[in-house]
Computed example of a mutant assay.
Amino acid sequence: MSDTETLLRQVEAATTATDLFGPPSADSGARRRARRTFRVLALRLHPDRLAAAAPGTDRDRAAAAFAKATELHEAWGREAEGDTTDALRGQRGTYPVGPLVARGTVANLHAVPGQDAVVKIARRPASSRFVRNEREALQALQDFTDRPGNGWLAPYFPRLIDTATVGSPTERREANVLGSLGRADGFYSLAHVRQAAPEGLDGRDWAWMQRRLLRALAGAHAAGLVHGAVLPENVLIHPLEHGVVLAGWSFATRPGRPAEGRVASQAAAYPPEASTGVLTPASDVFMLGALGLTLLRPEERAQRRFAEGCMQAAPAMRPRAADLLEEYDDLLDRLYGARRFRPFAVAV
């Protein structure tokens, strides 16, 4: 029996990812072994390599086996990146780790059954620094909103409930326990909104979202933070209550410091200084402008001009978020007159 035939039969007989790649694990050695196994399968079974690897082997059979191996390898990776711990022991309590509810840039979010919370766990030990960074940023925001007169800003930011460390001594990963802000709670990301409304948003709907985002950014800047990733997936809205939460603080930094990280797939949303220098509150203002251009309908010319005004190449030329609040309200008054509640629905 040829090596290719042996591999074909192994893949065809597999019913789970473990059958091919071993038990899913965050351990770096297990990851390397799984990658090596998949490379061997790809070299032998990929339709483009089949003629050289095993002349005469049925191409359709090999293609089906390769597709199955790819799917199982991806499933192995997703499970390995999650946390298999039944319960997470934090500084203040213990939290059952439920199903995966979201996959962020550097961490996975799991439900906490029976509690209004989610567990955010770094997928790899190297990503733990971003989870720690988010932890520090959220604590700074909480300290700021706890001050007299600032409490009204608290709903604009995620709530840090607890912190923990998971994994083996050689593969430690940081975790944060956050207040739940998922679809079960009525929240949707602007990434979902963009998918649900590919034609773009009516300016009247974007108006209440941007007004609240301006407040959130003004509050963060007053607390001495730069968010650094004002992207669709990091802005959560509650359509029924017109709530807005600025999430995704893993890459936050202090003014005058370099970015902690970037989402490479959304390079166009970042200001020029993000790749060559340091970030300031003006960097967040640029990204808010880019967000508006991404979400608004093309015919919303006045609001799109407002967004473009936030995107001056030189940071010193961009307005402050706090100053934009009054300017934006004046624009809305001219465009729409007296304010009235406008229902907003998101297609699931």
Rank of each mutant, 00 (worst) to 15 (best):
V193C: 12
A207D: 00
K120R: 05
L231M: 07
Q139N: 13
A140V: 13
G114V: 04
L236E: 06
P125D: 00
V235F: 05
D143I: 15
T163A: 06
G104L: 06
D146C: 13
Q142G: 14
N176E: 07
A154M: 14
V101P: 01
R183E: 15
T170C: 14
R123G: 01
R212C: 01
G167V: 02
R129E: 07
R173F: 04
Q195H: 15
T105V: 14
D146N: 15
S128H: 07
G219T: 10
L138D: 12
L213G: 00
A218G: 07
P158D: 09
R212H: 08
A207S: 01
L213C: 00
L138A: 10
Q142N: 15
I121P: 04
V118Y: 01
D162M: 04
R172A: 03
P155H: 13
A229H: 08
L138C: 06
L201N: 04
A117K: 03
P158Q: 04
L138N: 08
L178G: 01
M209E: 00
V97P: 03
V193M: 08
S168I: 11
G149Y: 14
V226R: 02
L138K: 12
R123D: 07
V166G: 01
L231N: 06
L225V: 06
A207F: 03
G219Q: 02
L138S: 07
V101R: 06
L225W: 10
L236C: 06
P239T: 04
G167Y: 05
T165A: 08
G186A: 11
F187Y: 15
